[in-house]
Design a protein around this nucleic acid. Sequence first.
DNA 1: CACTTTTACTTAATCGTTTACCCTACTCTG
DNA 2: CAGAGTAGGGTAAACGATTAAGTAAAAGTG
Lengths: 356, 356
Amino acid sequence: MVSMKDISAVCGVSVATVSKALNDQSDIGQETKKRIRQVAEEMGYFPNTAAKMLKTNRSYNIGVLFNHEDYSGLTHDYYAFVLDSLKRTVEEKGYDITFVNTSDRRAGAMSYLEHCKSRGFDGIAIVCTDFYSPEILQLVRGNIPIITLDHLFNNVCAVMSNNVQGMQDLLTYIYKKGHRRVAYIHGADSSVTQSRLSSFYRTAAQLGLTIPDEYICMSPYRDTKGAYAETVRLLELREPPTCILYPDDFSAFGGFNAIQERGMRIPDDISIAGYDGIRVARHIEPTLTTLRQDTEELGKMVGEKLLSLIEHPKTTLVETLVVEGHVFEGNSVADISGRNKEVPRKGKKHVVTDSI
Amino acid sequence: MVSMKDISAVCGVSVATVSKALNDQSDIGQETKKRIRQVAEEMGYFPNTAAKMLKTNRSYNIGVLFNHEDYSGLTHDYYAFVLDSLKRTVEEKGYDITFVNTSDRRAGAMSYLEHCKSRGFDGIAIVCTDFYSPEILQLVRGNIPIITLDHLFNNVCAVMSNNVQGMQDLLTYIYKKGHRRVAYIHGADSSVTQSRLSSFYRTAAQLGLTIPDEYICMSPYRDTKGAYAETVRLLELREPPTCILYPDDFSAFGGFNAIQERGMRIPDDISIAGYDGIRVARHIEPTLTTLRQDTEELGKMVGEKLLSLIEHPKTTLVETLVVEGHVFEGNSVADISGRNKEVPRKGKKHVVTDSI
DNA sequence: CACTTTTACTTAATCGTTTACCCTACTCTG
DNA sequence: CAGAGTAGGGTAAACGATTAAGTAAAAGTG
């Protein structure tokens, strides 16, 4: 690797002059600058990041904390898209992205914070992790610029997808389509779940919907089997819902299966809606009506705010940025507003069964 | 940050002694070692990676090249799972993973190779990228340990999913289920496509299948619209296939839509099969029969071979490692072997249509 | 006991940059 | 024309580690 020393030898100047020339300092003559730069180019010079880091305490490297259950967030559409956007945002500004090593969690091994300091990350984006672990707490207490996604810590910047507004929009949309019996299978307990669930109740109350307790139940996120089971239960109620909300799109496929298996059609016989707006859900018929979270904007916000925190630590506000999603209108929620005005029918609809 | 200097001051020894003690060198007394380590622990010491890198030319950091079309490979299930496995494999050995910055591709900016040398990556895993770009060529010609996934360069280690065997297994499976009219919508031109397509033809020949030209067509990978269109075309043939193979699982959903839309059922009326084995395909009914690539093993191989290349450069063979997939048996391919023996029926089956 | 060997450290150079401070030769200025 | 100012560049320390080479004392050897 060609170093500044090599360039200085060729140009017959000192190493300091080379450094200053390449960093465009004012106390080097135009002529000399031009010559040094040209030689550097010709010799194929590029800076040694390690040496630069050592001297300047800047790595132009962002650490991301990104693990989810047994896997990393990589296998999760929502997080993956956020990370992708984040990556593009910071790369544009000359930063690289490194995963915070989450492997060695033995006692005595480096903690997250130590690892991050050791690597010299300029900042850290906590995208997904177990926010309640003591190690994470230690990390956010450390004095590296930090930003979290979808979780609030005291005195730490955060980017949040607006789950309150999102659920309100989704439920309102469904209400406007004429649905009055809406069930909600919510995800496992977390701050995100709390936001959505309380927004669900509040919105329902505002709309004048009465939600029987049996319409509300839990199934873990992305668990198709759980969603399947709860869907079956809901369908077998004396008065089943006309629309079911799922914790997320993936879960909605579990409901989809249960419904199809019973020979019912979506959305003719029952409506469903997901949450997230994962890609595949837009490519399977019936396309899923869902609250699409703006992963592009979320990632961009995380990146921009973190860089601001790094580059302007004094003037950057510690605040929570909220990103809005929007209802993606698929084909999984029927418009039954007409039905509400009909005179209630008595008995069952006559069905012709064809015998072979 | 507490440095070795601080420790040496407290312990009353030289910095060199501290370094040797922490690195467990033999020429330091047991007593001294123990004392130094204890003090280091108490003072919360951890090594400065930059300084270590500068001196040793080892970063314990792996660069991954991971971009796919406009996005990174993050949004692609197959690559994401491979990366996840790779990440876990190398993290276990104390390495971190950094994305090779693919943002600034202007002339004059650093090339991939320069960027990688600048960052001091110990090795590079090229997971997905445009393998034909000159920059990539320059990168693999540079003398950093390199490994590629699903692409062969001269004199470069590679890990390949066995597409030849995979397609053979898949087609043979379908044949055994009684299918004789099999169409194949293959992906856009690439070495992977070549392998699968030629294997398809060879296997078909071995099985005695005659594949009419109109059964073979192209639709880009993960393009549901393209797959939809080709599926429609195939269904409208005078003699439509009994089974359609898609470039990948995602595309298969496009076919799925076309088939459902026509009121046909999978697999009763027509069979379909994908390729990859993405997660969501196992969670939607009918679950997709597909060739599931072993992403866990692929990532592990990439990681282990690369580390071997880094740690034992002399003794590590430059070779291509092949990873087998297996047929995932979903519900999307019907067993019609019975039908072949039946006397061909004349006319259409009588259908009772119920009028309201 | 005199010599060699071993043990346990220390010294000092080095990796490639950055940067505070110093130096020299011009150019102004009154 | 003496003194100040400035442009252009050099010196050397520093960042935090590693490591070859040196050294003094203890231990082993015949």
